[in-house]
Amino acid sequence: MAEGTTWTTYDANKMTSKEIYGKVLAELGETNDKIVGVTADLAKSTNIGNFGDKFPDRLFNVGIAEQNLFGVAAGLAKTGLIPFASTFAIFACLRGGEQVRTDIAYQNLPVKIIATHGGLSFGPAGTTHHCTEDYAIMRAIANMTVVIPADGFETAKAVRACIDVPGPFYMRVGRGFEPPLHDDENFEFVIGKAMKLHEGSDLTIITCGTPTLQALEAAKDLEAEGISVRVINMHTLKPIDRDAIMEAVVDTRRILTVEEHNIIGGLGDAVAAVIAESGKGCAFTKLGIPDEYGVIGYPEDLYARYKLDATGIQETVKELLGKEIEADEDWTDED
């Protein structure tokens, strides 16, 4: 890579989201001396180590101690700094979860939690290292913004954008070499504003994170079969883009949510709540990981098992298209 280039020229096919995170953070550190890093013996694994290589006095490694990790991050933020705290997602939301909630979120501190190895991305490591609970936990924490980028380009944009989020911020990325969703950096990424990736009129898939690319591929394949599917990338789980959801409900009357998370408490439930509160009924299915612990396997095999790949998503779309819905086409009287 040539000197002086930015992340926009990184070869996203060769870099993981977390690698891009590490590089972007190191770049941001050059112009913003308020940025510091904290990790718990996972500087290398989470790639926050890139920041530490460049700014050794600004990365604090607390050892294998996640409660301390988030307590220290809160203390750093209390002195006016913007700490990026990185560990694996499961440890961020459960091992250090109370510190995240009480030390960081309750005090509304601008700590940026960049959680790697989310979902089933660390498949062979087994259930101790899977994390299919973080959306539910983090979105129930007041003051928290929750973002799940779909690829490295979005990760880079989210890392830049989160600096301006005044309070706590949680971002989940994966581990592996998930293929990029975007071809380049020429797209708008605004926290809280969903992205329409594919237009469609028969059904809408609302998704985030790794399954987003799979959903898009499913929609393209279905188009060839004459099925018109809209794909919405709900990269910001909280605050959720209610307008994008309701537009999809009104336009397509069938909604499928797809997420790499336990079927309880995540994106599907967040979308369902918006729809239920609107009073406008529609056919609806949540696709995610059943309420059970994931088996061991490579991520792609696990995604196939839980129908989070393009094939599984296509099957589920067809099932949902067959669901009956109440034939009340006129919603104008309900406003």
């Binding site: 409660q67 002195t79 510190q99 030390d103």
Partner: peptide, 8 residues
């Protein structure tokens, strides 16, 4: 832990 963060 918060005190350690403040001191750092």
């Amino acid at each position: 832990p918060m005190g350690v963060g403040m001191a750092l």
